[in-house]
Simulated scan of single mutants.
Amino acid sequence: MENLAMMLFNDCFRGINILLTGHTGFKGSWLALWLRQLGANVTGIALPPDTHPAHWDLLRLSLNSHFADINNRQDITAVMQQAAPELVIHFAAQPLVRASYEDPIATWQTNVMGTVNVLEACRHQPSVKAIVVITTDKVYENAERGEHFIESDPLGGHDPYSASKAACELVVQSYRRSFFSKQNVLVASARAGNVIGGGDWARDRLVPDIIRAMHSDSPLMIRHPQAIRPWQHVLDSLSGYLCVAQHLLMGEADKARAWNFGPDQRDNKTVADVLVQMKTHWPELIWSEAPPPHVHEALNLMLDSRAAQTQLQWQPVWNFAQTAQHTAQWYQQFYQHNNIISVQQLDFYIRCAQQAGLIWVSH
């Protein structure tokens, strides 16, 4: 794995200092694993994991980890100065739609002012060359017309999570224009689809809800079975983020912009489609539709990722069926054999990308 991994992304991450916020979360922990495999010097800053089990705890990675809140500007600044990163990847956020209804103030504080704190620390840290801020596919003003959103579509959001992430995009744009363009620091934002994969136990997400329902021997209650989402494996989204980071580190100023990373359009599926696919791996899975009322959630959400495909030469590696298969396999190995197969799945993902001839694995 290591020899193969060291040749990814033109080997641009080997030996460089990277600050990763939110490294204890689902996506952040997978990226921390990948960056360590790529030979980067990773410093993480995040709150402690809020689930048990947690992917971060299971990985037992060796990196410089700080438990701190991005709402504390002093802590962020201190870690930034200590890490002296060339690249900053900002994941840390309040990432759940329904939680944003329960605590909108904390959601807005973390997703907007927390991002401001990170960018402020970057602005005063001379080592920083590139920044990638992770937002979401939910930043678009969604009129439910079934369109595939492109990066230039209007930003918006009904719920506090979506709206706060749209505001985060405006923060990124403002800092890019006001400060970083004068400092030759390249800043991009990344908007991925509905990400699934092994190691996620967050509440109010479909796959973790499936796992909890089966282990409690109770039927799964589904709020919106016909809601359409751009489902993709966590590694597909992360490969997109790393592609952007590579281009920024190479000094390509035209890549300092917003990017969509979604699945092939054929893989935009309903929640019911996901359940049917997962049932092929877990025949005991049963579900029923939860009675209303429900808080508002978009029923149709799809991304157009042609810009990333043409300008970054990125594309998803695993289709919908493969994504479901590898997700189910991760949990089955964990619960049936106490095996953590994250490294093996990353290795296999890279080999699949190599077989597909993707440019980020061709060097």
Rank of each mutant, 00 (worst) to 15 (best):
L155N: 01
V234P: 06
V172G: 08
L155G: 02
S218R: 09
N184C: 00
V185F: 02
L186N: 03
R176N: 11
R223C: 08
Y161Q: 11
D153T: 00
F149K: 06
I210M: 13
P208E: 10
F179Y: 14
E169H: 05
S178W: 09
G157V: 01
I228G: 01
S181H: 07
H158L: 08
H148Y: 15
K165I: 02
D217I: 02
R229C: 01
S216C: 04
K182M: 07
D204F: 14
S218L: 02
R191P: 03
G193K: 08
R177D: 15
R223Y: 09
P154W: 03
Q173N: 15
H148E: 12
R145V: 04
A167Y: 05
S152L: 06
R177M: 13
M221T: 12
I228W: 00
L206D: 11
E169P: 09
G156Y: 02
R176G: 12
D153L: 03
Y161D: 10
R191F: 06
S178E: 13
S237R: 06
S152E: 12
R191M: 06
I196S: 09
A202S: 15
Q183T: 00
I228A: 01
P225R: 09
S181P: 00
Q183V: 01
V234G: 02
D159H: 10
S152V: 08
L206Y: 10
P219I: 03
W231V: 14
F180V: 01
Y161K: 07
R212Y: 09
